[in-house]
Amino acid sequence: MLVARNLYKAYGPLQAVGGVSLDAGVGQVIGLLGPNGAGKTTTIGMLAGLVTPDQGEVRIAGKPFGGDTSETKCLLGLVPQELALFDELPAGANLDLFGALYGLNGKRLAMERERVFALVGLADRAKDKVDTFSGGMKRRLNLAAALMHDPQVLLLDEPTVGVAPQSRNAIFDNLEALKAAGKTLLYTTHYMEEAARLCDRIAIMDHGKVIAEDTVSGLLRLAPVESFVVIDLAGAFGRMAELQELDGVMEVSVSGAALRVGVRGMEMVGPLLTWLAANGAVVEHVRTERPTLETVFLHLTGRTLRDA
């Protein structure tokens, strides 16, 4: 449904995007994960037909973009990162305007307005001005505005920025409903939990390039550890260097009185605890954690998502 091939875009000396390719089928959700400045928004701009690529091509349902008035644009809905709404107007007037931009009017416009209001749960606020809405409600209306013309592909540029967890869940419910309805979603975020929850496949971007693309489980296999063992100790432990050298131990970090040990396999947990006891450590509590997409990103780039 959405195919991008080898997209390049530079602004002066800055190569914002350098060779991005993506492929999203009907009913698929593709995540674009990366830190701020990774090139996600420029990529979305090219996918939406706003930014002309220096090189490469975008096709929606097999059709390329053909200028400002291209019919292909009707297949796309864009949810910008900003709350792109007219605060001075009622919610219904906002939706009517964005529907009219795609040629909707009359009964069809009214019908679509009711449909998207029902989807995002704001039907009872249709006549209220947007500036009376909470941040979460504005985010939901921001999503609704992109759905008025019932697009096949929805591009979501960080749609949950600054949203409280409850509203975020409401937006996720909306997106899952759209996915179930067969819409293709491309979702950019730097929140890995969101990407892991929603996306069928995730492309990790850094410095304008896709450095890895796979399913969540496929990406997690790129992590250098299978599991983390978090061990709370009763006192200080001084034999860190020897612990680091143990067979099967991939990494060790200390946070207060807790050791965080990355191991290659779960079979390493028993021998690790035995070794610690034999070397004078008093273990109070043990738990294990799975590696996350953050771990993968750190492994691939040497940086965390938030400080990148």
Binding site: G49, T69, E71, L78, E82, Y102
Partner: peptide, 12 residues
């Protein structure tokens, strides 16, 4: 406010 992006995304 990002509205221009939204307008430009429409076939106008």
């Amino acid at each position: 406010r990002g509205l221009w992006r939204r307008f430009r995304a429409a076939p106008l």
